[in-house]
């Protein structure tokens, strides 16, 4: 079902045009990668502060209030450019093991943000100025750092074709994880 929609999407003229373009695709990809500096970079600065590893003396609320809006704005750019890249070759990404890992880790990062804002932020006034915030805040920061690092690494590895469905034989587990359309011998 989803695969059929993506197969149709990949046949639309704009998808083919983007996929085959000499400059649009690399420029979109460059924007996606360079925006990482603002998005993942500012998120990392906040995480390092919450881990007590950077910017001691700066209240955490100063960063969540004055830094996070930039992180969110950069995330919008990440999503827009990311969707455009996905739109260029939807089926390639659908069957990519690394892309599937990336989506999974995006989910982990998202749930972590929801939990952090629903639970940890509420008591923030008590440890706003602490050089080393409490365990729950440090855990959220560590999960965030690891999840986003994983998103970046798996995103980079999508470009490698080691597990590509078209290159058979692949192990059964790889074919299963990527839903490769292979006919059993």
């Amino acid at each position: 079902m989803l695969r059929d929609v993506l197969a149709w999407l990949g046949e639309t003229p704009w998808s083919i045009a983007l996929h085959e373009s000499l400059y649009m695709w690399p420029l979109t990809e460059s924007a996606h990668v360079l925006t990482l500096a603002l998005f993942a970079g500012t998120a990392a600065v906040l995480d390092l502060r919450m881990l007590g590893l950077a910017l001691g003396g700066v209240p955490v609320s100063a960063l969540t209030g004055r830094l996070l809006p930039w992180t969110r704005a950069a995330f919008v750019v990440m999503v827009v450019t990311g969707l455009a890249l996905f739109y260029a070759t939807p089926l390639t990404y659908y069957h990519s093991l690394f892309f599937r890992i990336k989506v999974l880790l995006l989910g982990v990062a998202g749930v972590n943000i929801l939990v952090f804002h629903a639970r940890t932020v509420r008591g923030m006034a008590a440890w706003d100025h602490a050089d080393r915030p409490p365990r729950a805040a440090r855990a959220a920061a560590m999960i965030s750092l690891l999840a986003w690092a994983g998103v970046i690494v798996s995103g980079r590895l999508v470009a490698y074709n080691w597990f590509e469905c078209a290159i058979q034989p692949q192990s059964a587990i790889v074919n299963w994880l990527q839903e490769c359309p292979v006919t059993p011998p």
Binding site: L34, L36, A37, L38, G41, T42, A43, A44, V45
Partner: peptide, 9 residues
């Protein structure tokens, strides 16, 4: 990401 972040802030 890290270098860009610490520079941009």
């Amino acid at each position: 990401s890290l270098l860009g972040g610490v520079l941009l802030v």
